[in-house]
Design a protein around this nucleic acid. Structure first.
Length: 566
RNA sequence: GCGGGUGUAGUUCAGUGGUAGAACGUCAGCUUCCCAAGCUGAAUAUCGUGGGUUCGAGCCCCAUCACCCGCUCCA
């Protein structure tokens, strides 16, 4: 039972219970679609961001980092196009589905087809604020709706200060803010979110020299690199796909875009984690002065009246194939791999969530469960025949009833090894409206407490805590003292905790639930020969090592993690 | 934005107008040499919030907020 159907709910409550994610402003009733990362959540998300930065900045020689301001000159958003499409109230025609600015429409009929219009509403509005003490139009500013523009506006700064040649890229992690219409699905869509964005600058096709990669090749390489990043951190390839956008989905300036989608549990299903877009020279041109008319027309841009710069690159290597003339000046093209840090964190959390049955209940403790299940199945059978006679009446649909009946029946037959399947059958859609099933759920829930574990099989690089040092007995001073020493010994290199507030079994379960990959247990033998056991989270297997070699062994296992998953 | 559902302890849930409960979790002590054992004790809820009906409201009514599901919309 790697991932139950109701995994999403379970992850939400686990997150709360274990300090991963809390609802924001909870004591005041919360605020729609805003969430806080708790002590373990911040470690997890930081690890996701660190892994990304390492992969796209440190492990390549063609990338630089950046951290631009959230509040920027308003003109940035005017020329990026966001002010026009993000801020003004818009109305939609219900008939021809065209969209207009509310202040451009006279009356309440569609100017094109005369159809009925919706009420004016803010689409994806940017958050407004005022810079300076006086709240008037002159101080109006926006919280950035994307981090990308901070990269574009710094293109020349980075180019010059870091002495870069095309192709190269700039990476940035930071908060962005959007007044979405329909937030929801836990941390998947929120008004305040964190992006991990790259703008990768490359030569327009007409300036390529023999042997150089085209924008299309580079785009493809980025899609692969980003896909492999997720897989390398433990994502199942069956739940991650590359989805090229259809031509009609693309923004008018985009040449291509491939979404990386993850199969979330529950109703969220296949949803976007990241988009890798080929944006051509649109963005840098938009922020440039003195752009030739032909380019403005080609990109459907207005002339930039405010920028002091032209976002140009001088290409020394260029040789004109007909004239032999060397050198060229042009505005580079852009490949944009744009990922969500919160979405990635949520996806890794979903991917990691597992439930396992570790032991089997006795026949007598199963008896009440079987009894309750028999009664429930009888009741479901009755409801099914009622639903067949009288379709469309209240309660679960016929399909839901049949699905529940089938799952419950097969689960019961496979007992005692199928506690989790039985539990899952009781949480299928519609199940909460079958009275007798509640008793089954209660009974099986109790058995699950005793015989199953929840475990986050996070990649060790992402795990909030890498090692837990546990004393086998807490009332043996020698053991406790040694365990505390080991924690201090490992902590400098690996996030390590000490815990002695329960029996060893419960201590292991706690660490399983938060995804700690390694547990070091100090026992009586330790006092004799300075060896401890090292427990593996996923296999629950244990091996004995000398204290001095622990750090090296754990390091080696972390590095070898990917091979082992293979 | 529209429709439906839910909101009671940290979590999952019971409680159909008359003294707020259970299980798990948490904490303290005892016990225990390896996978949620046991024993003893403890803390934890102005029943999402605000108003109303009533002698009396967790329960009925209204409003509001949040979350979930389904549409709609969106990068």
């Amino acid at each position: 039972m790697p991932r139950p159907d109701n995994a999403f709910e379970k992850i939400v409550s686990l997150s709360k219970r274990r300090g991963i994610i809390f609802q924001s402003s909870e004591i005041y009733g919360g605020l729609g679609s805003t969430w806080d990362y708790g002590p373990l959540g911040v470690e997890l998300k930081n690890n996701v961001k660190k892994a990304w930065w390492k992969s796209v900045v440190y492990q390549r020689d063609d990338m630089e980092g950046l951290d631009a301001a959230i509040i920027m000159n308003r003109l940035v958003w005017q020329y990026s196009g966001h002010e026009k499409t993000f801020v003004d109230p818009l109305v939609d025609c219900k008939k021809c589905r065209k969209r207009f600015r509310a202040d451009h429409v006279k009356g309440d009929k569609c100017p094109e087809c005369g159809g009925e219009l919706t009420e004016p509403r803010d689409f994806n509005g940017m958050f407004k604020t005022y810079v300076g003490p006086v709240q008037d139009e002159s101080g109006l500013a926006y919280l950035r709706p994307e981090t990308a523009q901070g990269i574009f506006t710094n293109f020349l700064n980075v180019l010059q200060s870091m002495r870069r040649k095309l192709p190269f890229g700039i990476a940035q992690i930071g908060k962005a803010f959007r007044n979405e219409i329909t937030p929801g699905n836990f941390t998947f869509r929120t008004r305040e979110f964190e992006q991990m964005e790259i703008e990768y600058f490359c030569k327009p096709p007409q300036y390529l020299q023999p042997g150089e990669k085209t924008d299309e090749q580079l785009h493809q390489e980025w899609v692969e690199a980003r896909y492999n990043w997720y897989i390398g951190l433990g994502m199942n390839p069956e739940r991650l796909k590359k989805r090229p956008q259809a031509p009609e989905e693309l923004a008018h300036y985009a040449k291509a875009c491939v979404d990386l989608e993850y199969l979330f549990p529950g109703s969220l299903g296949w949803s976007e984690l990241e988009g890798v877009a080929n944006r051509q020279d649109y963005d840098l041109t938009a922020h440039s002065n003195n752009v030739p008319e032909a380019d403005l027309v080609r990109l459907k841009l207005n002339r930039n009246e405010h920028s002091t710069e032209k976002m140009e690159y001088f290409d020394e290597a260029y040789v004109d194939s007909t004239t032999g003339k060397k050198g060229a000046k042009y505005i580079p093209c852009v490949i944009e791999p744009s990922a969500g840090a919160d979405r990635a964190t949520l996806a890794f959390l979903c991917e990691a969530y597992h439930e396992e049955q570790l032991s089997q209940p006795s026949d007598e403790s199963l008896a009440p469960l079987k009894e309750a299940a028999t009664a429930a199945l009888k009741s479901i059978g009755k409801k099914i025949s009622e639903a067949q006679k009288k379709p469309g009446s209240d309660g679960p649909t016929l399909e839901q009833l049949q699905a529940i009946e089938k799952s419950l029946q097969t689960a019961i037959e496979k007992l005692p090894g199928s506690l989790l399947e039985t539990d899952a059958a009781c949480s299928l859609p519609g199940a909460d409206r079958i009275e007798l099933l509640k008793k089954v759920r209660l009974t099986v829930g109790k058995l699950c407490d005793e015989h199953t574990r929840a475990v986050l099989k996070l990649h060790p690089e992402l795990a909030p805590i890498k090692v837990a040092v546990l004393p086998l007995k807490k009332n043996e001073p020698g053991i406790v003292e040694t365990a505390k020493k080991i924690r201090a010994l490992l902590q400098p290199a690996l996030r390590t905790v000490y815990d002695d507030t329960a029996g060893i079994g419960k201590l292991y379960r706690r660490q399983d639930e938060i995804g700690t990959p390694f547990c070091v247990t100090v026992d009586f033998q330790t006092l004799q020969d300075q060896t401890v056991t090292l427990r593996d989270r996923d296999t629950m297997g244990q091996e004995r090592y000398r204290i001095g070699e622990l750090a090296g062994i754990i390091e080696k296992r972390m590095v070898g993690w990917n091979a082992r998953q293979g």
